[in-house]
Computed example of a mutant assay.
Amino acid sequence: MSKKIDVDKQVAEARAGSRRATARLLTALESDSEQVPHITAATAGGNAKVIGLTGSPGVGKSTLTSALISAWRAQGLRVAVLAVDPSSPFSGGAILGDRVRMADHALDDGVYIRSVATRGHLGGLAATTGASVRLLEGLGFDVVIVETVGVGQAEVEIASLADTTLLLLAPGMGDAIQAVKAGVVEIADVYVVNKADRPGADATVRDMRAMMSLVRREAGEWRQPIVKTQAEDAGGIDELTAEIDNHREWLIKHDRLAAMRRHRAWAEIRAAVDDRLRHHYRVGDDLAAQLADGDIDVYAAVRKVLDD
């Protein structure tokens, strides 16, 4: 059981810029503390830009995240980052290396960076990522960046969480072919060809444009731009932030942002209800044995659980 905290005091300090207070609140949330209802009530509200950053391992997600932080901090915005790392299937641990790559922001009180282990949760995120984003919004951050684990074509959960999803590609890594596979191409709002100083960057852009031409769009639909960046020296970052702003303006103009957030809220409520039901209704070993032995069918077993 996690140690109790003074929620109101920690919320006030976090909103004033205390990273330690922010960390304590997130830790309580992730550990499913009995204080979670108090924490979520105290941090309700907020209207941050939620940016999803996804792509294959090695394309430079953390380096690009660091460059985006610098750009938004130059505009005076408070920025939070949730960097999701895969957990070991053997030890359960994770190499939380993203803080090392973002060390330039370690002393900036306007930036909060937290590495989060997936702990076996699929989809490229951790189980508590959505609740953590809502908490950070409520603490007054202007931008929340969610950097996923290195994803494949089925790990598209970030699209349901972020307002704008960036899909990173890199020349010479086969990403252009991977991106056209079902799942990945649909989740991106902006394509980013990072490490654009490498040979093959222009070819990657051409491949992506050719593949995008095969995707049918209704009139007035958002057409994903392709931005070339060199994140290590901030090349192309201004153009990228401009495209992110363009996408947000398009969402607002077409009443998509509010609809997306309502759907996100519905999914969050549903997940919380499902979690409560799992904790409330217990499936006993005897009932499982009856089903396995064929003495009862699954729907009768369900009725028995609910009736008990």
Rank of each mutant, 00 (worst) to 15 (best):
S213R: 12
A234T: 14
R209W: 11
I226A: 03
W250R: 01
Q224Y: 04
L214K: 00
K228Q: 08
N246T: 07
G236F: 09
M212R: 07
E221R: 05
R248T: 14
E221N: 11
D233V: 02
S213D: 13
M212Q: 15
I244Q: 01
L251V: 06
E249S: 13
T241N: 06
E232R: 11
Q224T: 11
M212E: 14
L214S: 03
D245N: 08
I252N: 12
E243F: 01
A234I: 12
I244G: 00
M208G: 02
A234L: 11
S213A: 13
E218D: 14
N246C: 03
K228V: 03
D245H: 07
M212S: 08
I252G: 00
Q224W: 02
M212T: 10
S213L: 04
E232V: 01
I244S: 00
R223N: 12
E218C: 05
A242D: 14
D238C: 04
R209Y: 03
Q230A: 08
R216C: 06
E221S: 15
A242T: 06
A210C: 05
A231K: 00
Q230I: 12
D233N: 13
L240I: 06
E239H: 00
V227M: 10
M208Q: 04
G220W: 07
P225N: 04
P225S: 07
I244N: 00
L214G: 04
E232P: 04
E239V: 07
D245K: 04
M211H: 14
E232I: 00
W222L: 03
T241A: 12
D245Y: 00
Q230P: 03
I237E: 10
R217D: 10
E232F: 03
L214H: 03
M211G: 14
G235Y: 07
M211E: 11
G235R: 04
G235F: 05
T229D: 06
V227P: 15
I244V: 11
L214W: 05
H247I: 10
H247D: 12
R217N: 15
G236D: 12
G235S: 08
I237D: 03
A242F: 09
Q230T: 13
K228S: 04
K228Y: 05
V227C: 14
R209K: 05
M208Y: 03
L251R: 06
I226F: 06
M208K: 00
D238E: 15
N246Y: 07
V215K: 12
T229G: 05
I226D: 10
P225L: 01
T241D: 10
V215R: 12
W222C: 00
I237C: 08
E232L: 02
A210W: 01
M211I: 15
R217K: 10
H247S: 02
K228G: 02
D245G: 08
M212D: 11
E249C: 13
A210K: 00
I252E: 12
D245Q: 05
I226M: 13
D245P: 06
W222H: 01
R248D: 09
G220I: 07
A234E: 15
E249M: 10
A234G: 13
L251T: 07
W250K: 02
R216S: 13
V227Y: 11
S213W: 14
